[in-house]
């Protein structure tokens, strides 16, 4: 099991015992439609992702927020330059740790936000093609680092325990490949997510 996932489970196991005694805890699962931007002429296609988040309400309006985000492999449009044809893709995972304030309107509606830091692991893969006699290939590299995330969402209560959520997310990974390359970049992931929450 990757160390990244192990770390997430450790964080979750640490929080769970506390949550058992809380007045309110919530588990959210969402699918995301993502838009990545690494700057420059990247031209990423839209991608997909999954988020699993666990909220422990410290107060009626404020929860501690722990989560895991996993993106699908997201490709750029193919490019061509003096070297040849190329295409890149990114696959990323993040552990999210922050707060989740909310405001309840008259039942069954609620708005909420998330704000926090993230620890990410991102794999960048590049495919290159030259010509028939000089074939190209694939190469990849992985980096880890920190960043932040913020989101704004709305929830609709289906019943006392189940909510439907629609959320706009912004995740920023800072200095990807800093120290390994002279060309580091910041990776922005904006996403629209749809999911369900279950309250214990």
């Amino acid at each position: 099991m990757p160390a990244f996932i192990q770390f997430f489970i450790i964080v979750l196991m640490t929080v769970m015992p506390v949550a058992v005694h809380a007045r309110e805890i919530q588990l959210d699962a969402s699918v995301l439609l993502t838009a990545m931007d690494a700057g420059g002429n990247d031209n990423f296609k839209s991608g997909k992702g999954l988020a699993l988040q666990y909220s422990y309400y410290l107060k009626q309006w404020l929860a501690a927020d722990v989560g895991l985000f996993v993106s699908d492999q997201t490709f750029t449009e193919s490019g061509r330059d003096v070297v040849g044809d190329y295409r890149a893709s990114i696959q990323s995972k993040s552990i999210l740790l922050g707060i989740k304030p909310r405001h309840k309107f008259s039942v069954p509606y609620e708005v909420y936000a998330r704000l926090g830091i993230q620890y990410w692991q991102t794999e960048l893969e590049v495919e290159e093609y030259f010509n028939e006699s000089v074939p190209g290939g694939k190469t990849s590299a992985t980096d880890t680092g920190t960043g932040y995330y913020a989101s704004l969402g709305g929830a609709h209560y289906i019943n006392d325990r189940v909510v439907v959520q629609l959320e706009l997310r912004h995740m920023m990974q800072l200095d990807v490949f800093e120290g390994e390359s002279d060309y580091p970049f910041d990776l922005r992931i904006n996403a629209l997510s749809f999911g369900f929450g279950y309250r214990f």
């Binding site: 690494a38 700057g39 420059g40 002429n41 990247d42 490019g79 330059d81 003096v82 070297v83 190329y86 890149a88 960048l124 590049v126 290159e128 030259f130 000089v134 190209g136 290939g137 694939k138 190469t139 990849s140 590299a141 490949f177 390994e180 390359s181 002279d182 060309y183 580091p184 970049f185």
Partner: peptide
Amino acid sequence: EPIEARDDRWYPVDLLNIDPGPG
């Protein structure tokens, strides 16, 4: 110049490039 020739690309070309060598 496998790196300089790619330096208009957005990603770390010094880390990720497939170099077939001089033609």
